[in-house]
C-alpha cells in the first residue's frame, strides 16, 4: 500500500523556527544566525561588535557549543547578556533549543540577538532558527577552498565576512577565488573583508548590521 505524503521532513523545526520568529517580531528584535567553521573567529567578531557598538545598539547572544560555556563567558566579559546552549554532541542548533534559551535572555532590553551556531559549515545551514538574517564567516587561515566545498552554507548567507584578513599576506590564500566561488552560488550577499582582532574593515559590517535594524523597524 503506497501512501503519497510529500511532507517536509524538517517541518517540526520549521514550525518552531516560526514561533521564534514571532517572538523576535513581538520584541522588536533583529535575530542573526552566525555560521562558520570552528575557530573562524565568531566569538571574537561578536565580542568586538558588542564593545564597538555599545553606545548604539543593545546586543544579546545565544551561544551554541557542543560542550563548555567559555564562549558565553567571553560575551559577558564584552558586556552583553549571553545564554549558553550545550548541545552535548549535536553538531548544529535546532529551533527548539533556541526557544528554550529565549526564556533566559532579557529580550525587552535588546535590539539584536546573535545566535552563534555550533562551529560547522555543513549541518547548521539546513536548520532555520527563526532568524532575520544569516551571516557566514570564513577566516583566511581556513583556506580559499571553503566556499566551493560548502556551497549550501554560502548559498543561504545574507552576508559573508572574510575574517583574519590581516593574515592574508602570510598565507597562501587566493582572495579573488574565494569571492568568485561565493558569487557563483550567491549573487546577493555582500562580502566584507575584515579583522576582528585589528578592527580593520569592521565599519562596513557595523553599517550593514545597523541597516538590518532600521529596515526591520
Amino acid at each position: 500500500m503506497k501512501i503519497e505524503l510529500n511532507k517536509r521532513i524538517l517541518d517540526k523545526n520549521e514550525e518552531c523556527a516560526l514561533q521564534n520568529a514571532n517572538f523576535f517580531a513581538e520584541h522588536n528584535i533583529t535575530c542573526i544566525n552566525v555560521i562558520s567553521s570552528p575557530g573562524s573567529g565568531k566569538t571574537t567578531t561578536l565580542g568586538r561588535t558588542i564593545r564597538d557598538l555599545a553606545d548604539k545598539i543593545k546586543i544579546g547572544v545565544i551561544e551554541g557549543d557542543i560542550f563548555t560555556d567559555t564562549d558565553a563567558e567571553k560575551i559577558r566579559a564584552a558586556g552583553a547578556p549571553a545564554v549558553q546552549i550545550e548541545t552535548k554532541g549535536s553538531c548544529h542548533l535546532s529551533a527548539q533549543q533556541v526557544t528554550a534559551a529565549l526564556s533566559a535572555i532579557p529580550a525587552e532590553t535588546l535590539d539584536i540577538i546573535f545566535i552563534e551556531n555550533v562551529g560547522n559549515l555543513v549541518c547548521p545551514s539546513d536548520f532555520a532558527l527563526g532568524e532575520n538574517a544569516r551571516v557566514v564567516i570564513l577566516s583566511v587561515p581556513e583556506g580559499d577552498d571553503k566556499p566551493i566545498k560548502y556551497p549550501g552554507t554560502f548559498a543561504k548567507a545574507d552576508v559573508v565576512l572574510i575574517n583574519k584578513i590581516d593574515l592574508a599576506p602570510y598565507i597562501d590564500f587566493d582572495l579573488d577565488r574565494v569571492i568568485k566561488d561565493i558569487k557563483a552560488v550567491n549573487h546577493e550577499a555582500p562580502i566584507f573583508q575584515l579583522s576582528a582582532t585589528t578592527g580593520d574593515g569592521m565599519q562596513q559590517w557595523y553599517d550593514w548590521l545597523v541597516a538590518q535594524i532600521k529596515c526591520k523597524k
Partner: peptide, 18 residues
Amino acid sequence: CEFDFAQDAELLLENIEL
C-alpha cells in the same frame, strides 16, 4: 557566470510503502 537560481528542492518525504 551571470545566472539566477530557481528554487532549490526541499527535503521531502515523498511517499511510503506500507
